[in-house]
Design a protein around this nucleic acid. Structure first.
Lengths: 209, 209, 209, 209
DNA sequence: TATGAATGAGCGTTCATTCAT
DNA sequence: GATGAATGAACGCTCATTCAT
């Protein structure tokens, strides 16, 4: 299917912002990658920062929506956590460029835009906090320092975007299962090869991405 | 103790490159932060990229040296892994700016400089690969996908630099112990609150940083 | 009565060129003020400069025509001078925007267009020169430096466009009479409250504007 | 005497702003006229608008100072008015570029800068208002519509900057005297060839310009 | 050692204009 | 008649770097 110009601009921006950073990407780089002149770019975007904000918000909105579905579709804390982890990993493995932009370019935002993006991110992380807390209360999890552990989990999972390649030996399903397994181990929960909950995430991802 | 000018430049660069990125930091920002004129900067550095390279290599050199000592000073794979993890976490918590520069600004390097930095990084990661492989062979560890697991471990530990604050509730020792504990769990190894090997890392860090 | 699109463009241009200058007015400003797209502008004008030239020539043509009638309709030099002054003042007070564009934007014209506009202006000023000369020969006027005095008169009268407001306390008739009176005083001629000749200009203006 | 670079920039800006207008003058035009690169311009000015503001304020400050001295140094309303007129005319004839910039480019200023410039201009015009009012009270002047007459006087005198050339047949002294004469006639005051007060203005100008 | 002065190249953005639909 | 789409050129301004003093 052919992409329209606006989509080509978006794709080019995502790729270049991820590869070279927001400040390392010039407007003329964007134009060349999108196959139009730099003046024409401005038919499809506001400022360069507006483009960044749009990319970030769209990515975070989808991630947040997916995570809500991943939690709702799972029965208990173990399953929910596995679902959250699998969703996060799948999203980052499928859209590594988008998620790296979200993770790395927040300091490039102006104060106002940064506040909104950080608020979305906080909302997303709250889902993790809730699930971990719930699991601890139900004795499904046993771990010290739940706040730190949540950060460790998130960083571990986000890291996927920094190295995963679809051309590598591991397919997405096994990747997601493995990470869910690692996460449950970190939380002191018995594990198996493919924890329940991963399947839930798979369906959400198939629907949203 | 008073810093000399060269050190002030280095500190300013580390802080600004970490906060705003290499491309987001101007030579005038650096000069102002160092308290000298932008022309004077060039008495204390080569090009702006040279400064970045210097910062990265110094940081990686010390990390690599520390990791070697951390491994050598530990008796078995479990202890070695815990020591590696603790060292990495302590280094990232103590020097979050330096390590974020190393982690984030590699794409800002020219090809030649990038090769050298990546080689150092590969050398460092090889230590982790070796320790994990050794543990698996000795049945100390039980985990699928050792390569992926190594990446998960590294990303988890490096993430510390992105959020740790010395003003937070957790002191460095407990942070290191907790991460070592999480790591051993991920590798399917029985754990305790403060795994052996963490102490080794502590000594190395006290010596090198 | 409703204006057609071409008239709306003209009005918008006159207003904006007067307010912000030719170079300070963008094609998008014009389009917005006229209520059409910037591409559509080009159905109603040639280039932006063509539009400026059209505005200037139309304004000068009408002024020149009016001045000829004002001179022809008056009996002697005193009356003629008063008529010229009143006509000029009335034209500038009624169409301050147009006349400010003519006065201020000549340097924005290309050489060729400038020549034509300046030629019109010279033709107009020649009428003043003739009347003043005639008055001096007939001893109706008594003033040194007739050329300088002509310039002083013209600048004084043109200045009306820079400050006159129909919402001010002075109506157009009294304004014209007062300026005619001032002008006759400058020329050393006895004066009264409403010099003969002003009425002539009034009729011409009513006819042409 | 050789001009330093800052002065060359100032002169170039005054000339170009006067000739082509603020918006019609590019930063590269300024640089070329000043004999430096466009980047170097920014060692000697803030923004392009700052440069405009500096030029305007300096010109108005000097005019205001001169006008105060011109009024103080004269004995009675007739003399004061003649002195004001002569000063204004001499200033505009000596610095036609500066004064045309002040007169024409006010709309190019941002709101804040415009307010300050207009305030200075108002302060200056108040001196004229006072002198005219004083003359009327003392029956030295006899004219209707004093406010309009003040504007007519000012426009007439400012117009000098639009046409005067030092290469023309009229020298500055005779120019100033003639304008003072015209002004007194407008105000209904007996006149002579070189009204008292002009000499005062001459001295002030020699001192300040 | 320190820095004002200088600059070619490039920044993000807007310009006036054209043209296919 | 009207306009989205498009663009080469130029805008005001900042970049990293050099060098004479």
């Amino acid at each position: 299917m052919a992409l329209n110009t606006e989509q080509r601009v978006r794709r080019a921006a995502v790729r270049l912002f991820a590869e070279k950073g927001f400040h390392g990407t010039g407007i003329r780089d964007l134009a060349q990658a999108a196959g139009i002149s730099s003046a024409s770019l401005y038919h499809y975007m506001g400022t360069k920062e507006d483009l960044l904000v749009t990319i970030m918000r769209e990515c975070l909105d989808r991630l947040l929506l997916g995570a809500r579905r991943a939690v709702e579709g799972a029965a208990d804390p173990r399953e929910r956590l596995a679902s959250l982890v699998a969703l996060h990993v799948l999203a980052h493995a499928r859209q590594p460029a988008e998620t790296r932009v979200v993770d790395n370019e927040v300091p490039a935002l102006s104060a106002a835009a940064r506040r909104r993006v950080v608020a979305l991110r906080d909302e997303y992380e709250q889902l993790w906090t809730d699930v971990i807390g719930e699991g601890l209360r139900h004795r499904a999890f046993a771990v010290a320092e739940p706040a730190v552990t949540r950060l460790a989990l998130l960083e571990m999972c986000s890291g996927v975007a920094r190295w995963y390649s679809p051309r590598g030996p591991l397919d997405l399903d096994r990747l997601a299962s493995h990470y869910a397994c690692l996460a449950l181990r970190m939380l002191g929960s018995a594990d198996d090869d493919c924890p329940a909950g991963v399947e839930t995430a798979r369906k959400v991802v198939a629907d949203l991405w």
